[in-house]
Simulated assay, not measured.
Amino acid sequence: MGSSFIPSILRPDFTWPRPMPYTISQRTPPVPRMPSKTSRIAWGYLHKALYYLSQWYCSWFGIAFDVNILQLPFGLVIKWTDRTSVEEAAAMHMARAAGMPVPRVLSCGEHLNAHYNRKFSILMTRLPGVSLANSRFPLEVDDEGPWLHELKTCVQSMRSWRPPHPSYIHSPIGTAIRSSRVPGHIMGPFTSESEFYNFLISPASSHGFSSLEEYEQALSCAKKLEQRPHRIMFTHGDFKAHNILVDDDGHLSGFLDWESAGWCPEYWEFTTAMRFGRGSWWFQVAAWMGGDQYLEELASDVALNLLTVDSYIAF
């Protein structure tokens, strides 16, 4: 639908820019008070109605209808996947309160009888920009736009936030953390890093190794994680190129997908991002932003992945 008579605010490319400030707060943002279950259920009915509106809206403008990210007028979208949760909404509130370019959460919907475990939805603002994509090119820091330093500011600032408890590992609201790399994709909460590590290593198996010697070498390497204590820091948890939006001027315009956010060991942000695609452009980005401090943890994390991948790959 290309009519010039349609107001821009109704078009699917209308966005609510969130200008990147010069600084991001290094003080821990307050944990938001999340809406009650009754309120979330009520909003869920509205989100369901907006689901059908989105179908009509996309048809009207001739754009693809995405059941996971529902496009709406007035610069709005609904994220509605089997991974969306109240914990994600809480993390977005905190990141936005600190000044990061994160969508504004308008409402949370709960769906008790949803199919395919799509039990939660978030109505939020649409941000401008284009997602980054990984590649095999070398990182040239001086040739990148200002987004690179702006993103580093975001990451380093939230790593300075003080956790509610110095050893607890949990979501922003004290509950379990969603992670695609554990059985059932849910972990915790944990009261210590040791408890966290024991959970990660518990499904270890020799199934994927060609010899007992290879298995024992991987196990020995993975166990080094437990031998090094780590601080607990606020972690995005899915620090990947496709979750970063950059505008036409090269500035950071969006930091998205906080579904795996929470308080985790300091290496978790970087080793999760660097486990695959070693040497790729995004690997270099993560290393430059601080991941190069955790190369030993990365080797242990890669070994841990080889030992436990069978336990979660089918989910």
Rank of each mutant, 00 (worst) to 15 (best):
M1L: 13
G2Q: 13
S3N: 12
F5P: 01
F5K: 12
F5Y: 12
P7K: 05
P12V: 00
D13H: 08
W16N: 03
M20I: 11
T28W: 06
T28D: 07
P29N: 12
P30V: 04
T38K: 15
S39I: 13
W43P: 00
Y45D: 12
H47V: 00
H47D: 04
K48N: 05
K48A: 03
A49S: 14
W56K: 08
C58F: 01
S59M: 04
W60E: 00
F61G: 02
F61T: 00
F65S: 01
N68H: 10
N68S: 09
L70S: 02
F74D: 02
F74M: 06
G75R: 02
L76D: 01
L76R: 00
V77F: 00
W80S: 02
R83F: 02
T84K: 01
E87H: 13
E88F: 06
A89N: 10
A91T: 07
M92T: 04
M92C: 09
H93F: 14
M94A: 10
R96I: 00
R96T: 01
G99W: 09
P101E: 11
L106Q: 06
L106V: 03
S107A: 15
E110V: 02
H111G: 03
N113D: 15
R118I: 01
F120G: 01
I122Y: 01
M124C: 04
M124F: 00
M124Q: 07
P128Q: 13
G129L: 07
S131Y: 02
L132T: 08
A133C: 11
R136K: 14
E140T: 08
E144L: 06
L148E: 05
E150Y: 04
L151G: 05
C154V: 15
C154G: 09
S157L: 13
S157A: 15
W161K: 15
R162A: 15
R162Y: 11
P166N: 14
H170N: 13
A176S: 15
P183E: 13
H185R: 14
I186V: 15
M187Y: 02
P189E: 10
F190I: 11
T191I: 11
E193H: 12
F199A: 15
A204P: 02
F209A: 10
L212I: 10
E213D: 11
Y215P: 00
Q217C: 10
Q217L: 13
C221W: 05
C221H: 08
K224H: 12
Q227K: 14
R228P: 06
P229M: 09
T235R: 03
T235Q: 06
K240Q: 14
H242S: 12
I244F: 06
D249C: 10
G250M: 08
H251G: 08
S253F: 07
F255D: 03
L256I: 08
L256E: 03
E259K: 05
E259C: 05
A261C: 13
G262E: 04
G262W: 00
W263K: 07
W268I: 05
W268S: 05
E269P: 07
F270Q: 07
A273C: 10
F276G: 06
W281M: 08
W282Q: 03
A286R: 00
W288M: 08
G290F: 05
G290K: 05
G291E: 05
G291M: 03
D292Y: 14
Y294S: 04
Y294K: 03
L295N: 09
E297D: 15
S300L: 06
V302F: 08
V302Y: 06
D310Q: 15
S311M: 08
S311L: 07
S311G: 13
S311D: 08
A314H: 14
A314L: 10
